[in-house]
Design a protein around this nucleic acid. Structure first.
Length: 270
DNA sequence: AGCCAGGACAAGT
DNA sequence: ACTTGTCATGGC
């Protein structure tokens, strides 16, 4: 059992259900169970303390994944200079940007294209059940996210991903064959990382931006999906082509955080 | 029933 | 370099 004490602001729901990840499921007691690589955990948040029951007791691993050491009060304070953003943040001030696994993030956001969040979760669940490892945790059975090797040259029709199958398989083969090495991306600047990731079939600007933000923590990324395009138009009266420049100018190094607050608040009325 | 979904790609201007 | 049709599937 790991405990991170007095982590504020923080919200399990806002962090795990804000659309950055798809493998955490809420339990009846309000805790969340999910996978990170081969590590499964049940995470609770009680009186400001994050409590982790996991098959991985590596404190640094979870601290890194949950972005524990970052000063979110400072980020929120900086972004709140803008009243519109301040209001958006009020819906999801407990969001943390998870440091996710690059491979899982690439595949997850390939699946996300032209798709809705409930079905994205369903497809990823099928992917794990059919190709991942079976893991027993607290007497229950779960399935880890498959490695590139585990889906290499496989028939993916069971996961019902439609036209995305070929993209996922292409990504797997590029990783297995060493054409793509995610470890190199950590040290790339944003532009280089963007072009590098877009070598993968099915990865365009938006998916690459999500991977750059959610796996590689390059916070100048500002993924532009249909929700962001809508809300930027409504809240800031900014046209689609101007979002990039506008965001960089207004949110500076905190673009990624700003994007998540906007995305989360925009989706609250559905 | 029909529109839409955390888009990308390729063919056509 | 920009615009448009197409791609599977199913949630709502």
């Amino acid at each position: 059992m790991l405990i991170f004490k007095n982590i504020i602001p923080f919200s399990l729901e806002q962090t795990f259900d804000c659309g950055q990840c798809f493998r955490w499921d809420v339990q009846e007691d309000g805790s969340y169970i999910g996978f990170v690589g081969k590590h499964i955990a049940k995470i609770n948040y009680i009186n400001g303390d994050i409590v982790i029951d996991s098959n991985c007791e590596d404190e640094l691993f979870w601290k890194s994944y949950l972005d524990i050491d970052r000063d979110y009060l400072q980020i929120i304070n900086d972004l709140s200079a803008d009243d519109i953003m301040k209001n958006a943040i009020s819906y999801g001030e407990g969001i943390r940007l998870l440091k996710q696994d690059p491979w899982e993030t690439v595949v997850s956001f390939i699946i996300s294209q032209n798709n809705n969040i409930p079905r994205i979760k369903k497809i990823i669940g099928l992917l794990c059940e059919n190709f991942g490892d079976k893991v027993t945790f607290n007497g229950e059975t779960y399935y880890s996210f498959p490695t590139p090797e585990q889906i290499y040259n496989k028939d993916l029709s069971v996961i019902r991903a439609g036209f995305r199958d070929k993209y996922i398989l292409s990504a797997a083969s590029m990783v297995v064959e060493g054409i793509i090495d995610f470890n190199l991306v950590y040290n790339m600047d944003y532009d280089t990382a963007l072009e590098y990731l877009k070598q993968i079939k099915g990865v365009g600007n938006k998916v690459a931006d999500c991977v750059i933000l959610f796996a590689f923590q390059k916070f100048e990324s500002f993924p532009k999906d249909v929700w962001i395009k809508r809300t930027m138009s409504q809240l800031y009266n900014v046209a689609e082509e101007e979002i990039e420049i506008f965001a960089k100018q207004k949110f500076k190094g905190n673009c990624g955080f700003a994007q998540q607050y906007l995305f989360y608040s925009a989706r609250q009325d559905i």
